[in-house]
Design a protein around this nucleic acid. Structure first.
Length: 474
RNA sequence: GGCCCUAUCGUCUAAUGGUUAGGACGGCUUUCUUUCAAGAAGCAAAUAGGAGUUCGAUUCUCCUUGGGGCUGCCA
């Protein structure tokens, strides 16, 4: 069963379609992708691990594919384990024929009870199966409802070792592993089995995966040994953690890539954030980098060992940096669907006009919903129009003056309008008295961009209308 | 419980057997200012504890403690 291995780097991302693409899976994919691309000849493989037919769903598979593409992590080869059952059957049958695997008929209840007893005592939860044939010439048979296990050596004193590129040598005691389950039937392999066969069949040279798989590795090595497969190189990535330092899950934050996409995080920004979790660029004071810049300097040896907390504030900052890098046209295109989601169809000309204002203040695209005043009449309490301790009459007077200005010079010339307002502010000896009521009239908010900019975008007619509405309120 | 991984500011991290332990996000202050952002300037903030090796340890070794992962007929 040996075959000639090629020298080129081959790595894989192996998600199971039991949920939307997880942010942690995305980072694992990214590191695999970076590693493959860094070695220019490297191949990056996407393998859908859908051996669990109960939990696997097509919509999750579609999502994984869509989001990986969106992130720009394109794969060179694609496989699905459910297409490969014949391959697994062949290998399982061989193990059975060789007496290296056997049928175990313990019920799930029996096994559960055994586990409980072992855990409550000081034993190790390990199943050494009494159904194991005592002599290897006894051909195992499927007597009905059972499960296939790999024969292991209960009395072994050997340590199973492997070298992890990130962590160095790791070892486990073989006798603590038990007779591990490998398949529910000849044609339905379990995770460990499918992984080992696929990694071999696909000539995977480096298994780069999450730290949560460290304890799985010796079991997979046992399987490799049963077939005489060569061991791939391992690199176990640190986990992405929630704020309480446990594995990132839904109770901490959004965990699926799709959710971040929906909120208007840009793919390059998300990727930038992700590679900063567990890896540092050469010039560590310059953290905004493109994928291509990272490819050049990427190396697994520099990946950190300890878990990294997912900090949404840093993601927001990185995303805002990417938004600032977009030009008007680009940002308009990006933001349009978010505007239309909240406010319905929207004129492209309007979007182009407001984009410079958005650029300075959006952390993520969905925040455009805070700029409602561009798309619909503002609603607000009359109290909001008050500036400091100024009287209603003073506010009214301020509006009267602004009305005069706008009617006179319009809103097209922003500099002129600003000049006039500044002069008005000087006359009042209080710039706020000129600007504050004006902003509230236009936006209904106490915080917004410069009202002059907003008036310019709204146009003369709407501006005057909103001022009048404010005057009526007082 | 057992096995395994891990430990520098709140967070992501840099660095070194001898440094004022550096940067980024966030926070705070100041500035700009009609408000909010953005921008500019600045401030606070860390080597988990204990032994050992050493002239010297945050760095190397061991122990403790903390954190995490795994412990499925899930992946």
């Amino acid at each position: 069963m040996t075959k000639v291995k090629k020298e080129i780097i081959r790595v894989r991302i192996a998600p199971s379609p039991t949920g939307y693409l997880h942010i942690g899976t995305a980072r694992t994919a990214l590191f695999n992708w970076l590693f493959a691309r860094h070695k220019s000849e490297g191949k990056f493989i996407l393998r859908i691990e859908d051996t669990d037919i109960e939990r696997s769903e097509k919509k999750f598979e579609d999502d994984i594919i869509a989001q990986l593409e969106w992130l720009g992590l394109k794969w060179d080869e694609f496989y699905k384990q459910s297409d490969r059952t014949k391959i697994y059957s062949k290998y399982i049958q061989k193990l059975l024929d060789d007496g290296k695997a056997f049928w175990c008929y313990h019920s799930e209840e029996e096994l559960e009870k055994e586990r409980q007893e072992q855990m409550s005592g000081k034993g190790v939860p390990t199943h050494w199966c009494s159904h194991k044939p005592q002599t290897s010439n006894l051909k195992p048979q499927n007597l009905g409802k059972g499960i296939i296990r790999l024969v292991a050596d209960e009395k072994s004193t050997r340590k199973i070792k492997f070298n992890d590129i990130i962590r160095g040598e790791i070892e486990f005691e073989e006798r603590l592993l038990g007779d591990i389950s490998i398949a529910k039937a000849v044609d339905t392999p379990l995770y460990h089995f499918a992984v080992v066969i696929d990694d071999y069949e696909m000539d995977i040279t480096h298994v780069i995966r999450g730290e949560d798989h460290i304890a799985n590795t010796p079991k997979q090595i046992l399987l490799q040994e049963a077939f005489g497969f060569e061991q791939p190189q391992y690199a176990h990535l640190p986990l992405i953690l929630g704020t309480d330092r446990s594995k990132l899950s839904k109770r901490h934050a959004a965990t699926s890539v799709a959710e971040y996409r929906k909120l208007g995080y840009l793919p390059d920004a998300l990727v930038n954030f992700l590679f900063l979790l567990g890896w540092t660029p050469e010039k560590s004071n310059h953290e905004i980098l493109t994928k291509n810049e990272v490819i050049e300097q990427f190396s697994l040896e520099k990946v950190h060992k300890s878990g990294a907390v997912f900090d949404i504030k840093k993601l927001n900052w990185i995303n805002s940096q990417y938004i600032k890098m977009e030009n008007d046209g680009g940002l308009a295109k990006l933001v349009q669907p978010f505007i239309e989601k909240h406010y319905g169809p929207c004129d492209e000309e309007l979007i182009i006009k407001i984009v410079p204002l958005l650029r300075e203040r959006l952390e993520y695209l969905d925040q455009v919903k805070e700029f409602h005043f561009f798309f619909k009449e503002p609603e607000y309490e009359k109290e909001l129009l008050k500036w400091k301790s100024r009287s209603n009459e003073e506010i009214k007077n301020s509006f009267k003056e602004i009305q005069k200005i706008v009617e006179g010079i319009g809103v097209e010339d922003k500099n002129k309008l600003r000049q006039e307002l500044d002069m008005l502010g000087k006359r009042f000896e209080d710039r706020g008295l000129a600007y504050w009521p004006f902003r509230v009239a236009l936006t209904g908010e106490k915080a917004s961009p410069d009202p002059v900019d907003i008036a310019y975008i709204l146009g003369k007619e709407k501006t005057l209308k909103r001022i009048q509405k404010a005057v009526n309120k007082i």
